[in-house]
Structure formats: C-alpha cells, structure tokens
Design a binder for these strands. Structure first.
Lengths: 172, 172
DNA sequence: TTAAGTGCAAAAGTTTTGCACCAAG
DNA sequence: CTTGGTGCAAAACTTTTGCACTTAA
C-alpha cells in the first residue's frame, strides 16, 4: 500500500517526480475491488467519467513506468489489450484461468506455483518482479457449442456476457 | 507432430480445409529449433525470404485458427507482439522467464507447476488448452545499470544483444 | 459445384512521439 | 531555474475486414 509520501520517495529515488496524475492513477488502482484489472483505455474512461481527465498518452506512459517499477503488474489475458492491476508481494500473487472462447476469467492463488517460480528465478540469477501463470482453457458453455468449430470469430458464450454485466455493475 | 494427413483430418473434422498456406506455416513451426518462437511479422518475413510469400492477413488468420485449435500456443512475453510456437502435450509445457528491461528470455520446464495448473483447471471444470507461467524479472546486467532508473526507454542490455545475435544465426 | 480461403487494399485500433507549455524539486 | 512531465495532435504500428477471385472438397 503506497501513501503519497512513499510513492514520492520511490519516484524521487530514481530521479522521477510525483505528479497529481501519477498519484491519482495509483490511488485508483488501490481502490479497485480485488481481482479487478483495467486496460489503458478503461482507465482513461473511468477518469473521464469522474471528470479528472488524464490524457491517454500520460496514462500509457504511467502504466509503463509503474510496471517497470514493479508497482503494477501487466496481465496478458486472452482479451485484446494489456490489463493492469496492483502488484503485491510474491506469495500473494494470483494467477488466471481464461476461456479462450469467451474471455471469461477465473482468478486463483496457489502458493506452490509461486514458490516454484521463485525457485526458478533464483536458480537463473535474475531478480523477480512478477510471475503469472495463465491457463488457457475452454469453458463448458463453449464446449457445448462444439469448439473449436461452429462458432464464428465473434462468438461469445453466455457466461462471458454475465461476467461483462457483473463488471458493469461493479463500476456504478 | 502433424503430418499432412493428420492436419487435414483435424481441419476437415471441423469443416475447415487444408491449404498450402496452412500446411506451410505448420511445417515451418515444426522445423523451428526448440525454444524458438515467432511473431506474425517474423513469420511473414521468414516466408518472404524463402520466396514462399503468404499474405500477412492469412498469417494472422492462420495463427489465430491454429491457436484456437490448440496446435499453436500464443506466448505473451515482454516483447511487443504475441509470439507463437508449437503446442505440445501438457506435461512437456515449458515456461518462460523474461527480463522486463531487455526482453532476454529463458525457457524452463517444471512439472510441478504444470501439474498444479492441471489441478486448478480441473477444479474449475474447464478444459485445458495451454498453460504458461511467465516470470518477469530483471537480469543482472540491468540491475547493474541501476534499474529502474537510468536507462532510457530503449535501453537494451548487452545480454539481449547476444541473445539477438544468436537468434539471427539460428535462422541462417 | 459451392463454401471456404486467399490476397489486396483499406479501415480500425492501439501505442508511441515530437513539441510547446507547465510544474516539481 | 532546470529538468522532467503533460497534453495535444500526428505518426507509427499492429491487427482486422470487405471484396473479388481461387480452390479444396
């Protein structure tokens, strides 16, 4: 959990500055419901709604910076865009199962995986920033529709629609 | 390992067709050195060099199709583009460590991780297609340069350059 | 024969950049 | 003050699509 001051300290240590935009973006991530992640575009729209507009380019620049600093983690899910969420200490890392057909995402924690990741990275002599197990799978709905044929490129299983609706609600 | 016939069978079973382009692309992936993966653009250039040009759109379409069929796996490494490689049976899946600064990639196998992934996905009732643990880390070179400050956006550590040179050679 | 696949060119997106201005340290 | 950050608009890329033409089955 960052305070204004600890964020400032960490930035300044590297010759970077604390700006209202950076503060706002981090704060927003810290208030996000657990398990929720945002793309650059979503973040942009969220801020616009609150009329605390930040330009898209600043958002892109900030997301990249914070990812490099290890403050955010960049998720590469089946969806088109990169998504971001707060990075937490290694043993609390969570991982994702994604339906390749409908993008439905399930989050889970599994310490054994995280531990193995730490072991692997130590063995290689690098320094861990983040680790993510992404499992690509097909959900039962999609199987029932006869994956991988039948459905068109835009086919969306109903679970996905439910998940999308749920997210919409969370935002209100 | 697909033969022309087994590929054809699998395609036809879903109402799709075997085309010279699809055959060529799959063949190319099957001949790739172990651990090598390609982006759409790289694949395009590789084919162009051999004057067996396939249009970029066909390449994109084919990569997507084969990923959905489970023939290829889509890797989301730190690099900009998606990369693709042959998908193998689950217990042989390998995972990646990527330096977020220089994109240097280390491949490793770890059955415990794969087993946990299988367990997780079974628990959730979906059907596994692929699982990838991606570890984001910083390599010693990058640390020495004072990560995460100092280096510009384009900074590339020498290890990356070595790795790149090595790849070039593999291609000849 | 006919439905699917290809290539091309155009469109749609996403992400990055140059530059003038502003502001944190 | 001076260096880094922001916003804007333009540029650069990546990926998708419409369409006419080919071709696998």
């Amino acid at each position: 959990m960052y305070t204004k001051n600890s964020l400032k300290a960490e930035l300044n240590a590297k010759g970077w500055r604390l700006t209202p935009q950076r503060q706002l973006i981090l704060q927003l991530f810290q208030n996000l419901p657990k398990g929720r992640h945002l793309s650059a575009e979503e973040l942009f729209e969220l801020l616009e709604k609150r009329s605390e507009g930040i330009s898209l380019s600043t958002i892109y620049r900030t997301l990249k910076l914070m990812t490099r600093m290890g403050i955010l983690r960049e998720l590469e899910l089946a969806e088109v865009h990169k998504h971001y969420e707060l990075n937490t200490a290694a043993p609390n890392h969570h991982h994702h199962i994604v339906c390749t057909q409908c993008n439905m995402t399930i989050e889970f924690e599994n310490n054994m995986i995280t531990k193995q990741a730490i072991k692997q990275v130590e063995k290689s002599g690098l320094e861990l920033i983040d680790c993510q197990l992404t499992i690509y799978a097909i959900c039962p709905q999609a199987i029932r529709q006869g994956f991988p044929a039948v459905m068109s490129n835009n086919w969306v299983c109903s679970r996905a629609i439910n998940a999308a609706n749920k997210l919409e609600k969370d935002e209100e």
